[in-house]
Design a protein around this nucleic acid. Structure first.
Length: 344
DNA sequence: GAAACGTGGTG
DNA sequence: TCACCAAGTTT
């Protein structure tokens, strides 16, 4: 199909999508507002995250941080706490910095122009387009994985979505179908992409575009989108020491490099020559996108008060207990380990 | 511009 | 079981 006609041959498709949205939009918490703060937060929360997975985090986050000022004035660790278990933790760090940007550079008023929204930490072209179109009648398509999938099937287009040029390519494709109301169009594409035009087993019978979809017409839906690059996960072994005494245990905060940015963890080493009492060890496997983790955790019960005090002082570890640890953000496997330690 | 970055659902 | 993938951004 020729798509470079440069006219509005496909505009009726975008209008159909908008019409479908106004009758079929999902009823989600952030669909009842045009508050750019809330739309921004929801766009960040749901990056690479399914609705069911992030909905509680979104609601809890908005309840605790209802506006830009509250978020900007919060401690970074509390923002991370509300992100616990959600993954991609730099999102929480960036969201906090962006709130401070809005306070400092925009007098606390959320910027309305795409180019200004794009300057916020953690906001890329997708999020800037989504917020500006939903809240401020902006005209940029919010091109994400849903756009890639829906458009590549609609036009039976074999452009490689794992190519670095995919964003600009599908942005131009989106321009062919995009109607006047870009906000509704963008949100419609999210709903169609996630509920109907799913990666596996798409519900083509319910799709408002099934009469227009070239992949459906040729029964080649499973051929699209084309994706050539695969992520390869490497093995990585981690060692931790769950060092505890009288119901308390030791933790420290990670740096903002590598995985699990600024989350808390257990000591990764014990000093040579100081032999504490090791009860045993447990090995946990945990998959990240590009790492297969094998985490061995030694259960170290410290009987010597002197060892305990020296160990803490020399290494500047923090002392906590199971109850207090609920107020800190841990990686999922360590969070699970702490919960299970209650059963001992 | 390629690689890094979490977690959980799905077939 | 396990590879794939989900409302991307940063470096």
């Amino acid at each position: 199909m020729k798509k470079d006609s440069g006219n509005s041959d496909f505009l009726y498709i975008g209008r159909k999508i908008g019409e479908w949205y106004r009758n079929n939009a999902r009823d989600l918490p952030f669909r009842q507002t045009k508050d750019p703060y809330k739309i921004w937060i929801c766009e960040i929360v749901f990056q690479q995250t399914r609705i069911n997975q992030g909905l509680n985090h979104y609601n809890n986050f908005i309840e605790r941080f209802p506006d830009v000022k509250t978020l900007a004035e919060a401690e970074e660790n509390e923002v991370l706490l509300y992100w616990k278990g959600l993954g991609y933790y730099s999102r929480a760090i960036n969201i906090h910095k962006a709130a401070q940007q809005i306070m400092n550079d925009y007098q606390g008023v959320f910027p309305s122009r795409y180019e200004e929204i794009l300057k916020l930490k953690g906001v890329g072209k997708y999020t800037a387009a989504a917020v500006s179109s939903i809240c401020f009648n902006g005209k940029m398509p919010a091109v994400d994985g849903n756009f890639y999938r829906v458009l590549s099937r609609l036009f039976a287009d074999d452009f490689d979505i794992s190519s670095s040029k995919a964003f600009s390519y599908f942005s131009e494709l989106a321009q062919l179908v995009m109607p006047e109301n870009v906000g509704d169009f963008n949100q419609a594409m999210m709903d169609i992409g996630s509920e109907i035009c799913k990666p596996k087993n798409p519900l083509c019978g319910e799709c408002p575009l099934n009469e227009d979809c070239l992949a459906f017409a040729t029964q080649k839906i499973s051929d699209y989108p084309v994706k050539t690059k695969k992520v390869k996960a490497e093995d990585l072994a981690l060692t931790y020491y769950f060092v505890h005494r009288n119901g308390q245990f030791l933790i420290r905060q990670r740096g903002d490099d590598f995985i699990w940015k600024k989350l808390f963890e257990f000591p990764a080493a014990i000093p040579a020559g100081m032999q504490p009492f090791i009860v045993g060890s447990k090995t946990i496997t945990h998959k990240l996108t590009h790492k297969n983790l094998s985490i061995e955790i030694f259960n170290v019960e410290v009987t010597s008060e002197k060892f305990w005090n020296d160990f803490i002082t020399e290494n500047q570890y923090l002392i906590t207990d199971v109850e207090a640890s609920h107020k800190k953000s841990f990686p999922k496997p360590l969070e699970n380990y702490i919960q299970n330690s209650l059963k001992d």
